[in-house]
């Protein structure tokens, strides 16, 4: 589901990002910045869909404030979390259920 490269991190002038770390998303490495949200990392990595519903419909983040639960992903060690409310830290392993690693919701 890496259909769009359109999302991009903004160059920040008054703020400086920390050194990037590597996280795993559906078995592939993704560079992300500690403290930014997992939703930010996934969008900046070109993903638009974060999960599929039971009927197979694709969903991505909507409210970006912890209300809609459409950005839920599975993080090893944390279980199902809202990507918009979860901070990136080194070594996170994320499963959307949309990758080729055979893992996803319910598998975490």
């Amino acid at each position: 589901m890496k259909s769009s490269p359109a999302s991009r991190r903004l160059p920040v002038h008054a703020v400086v990002r920390p050194e990037p770390v590597s996280i795993m998303v559906d078995g592939e490495a993704l560079e992300a910045y500690p403290g930014e949200s997992l939703a930010t990392a996934l969008l900046a990595g070109g993903r638009r869909a974060f999960r599929a519903t039971r009927s197979g419909a694709l969903r991505g983040p909507v409210c970006n404030m912890g209300v809609c639960f459409d950005c839920v992903v599975v993080v090893e060690t944390l279980g199902e979390v809202r990507a918009c409310m979860t901070a990136v830290r080194a070594g996170l392993s994320v499963h959307t259920g949309l990758g080729n690693d055979g893992a996803g919701h319910g598998a975490g």
Binding site: S4, A6, S7, R8, R9, L10, V12, V15, R17, E36, S37, A39, T40, L43, A44, R48, A49, F50, A57, L58, R59, G60, P61, V62, C63, N64, M65, C68, D70, C84
Partner: peptide
């Protein structure tokens, strides 16, 4: 409205002003 890419205005704004991310291109 359930398609990925449809977001709330407040959600888009939070990406820009807090996360320093443009959550799309157009």
């Amino acid at each position: 409205w359930t398609l990925p890419g449809v977001m709330s205005a407040g959600g888009v704004q939070a990406f820009v002003k807090s996360e320093k991310l443009l959550p799309g291109g157009c």
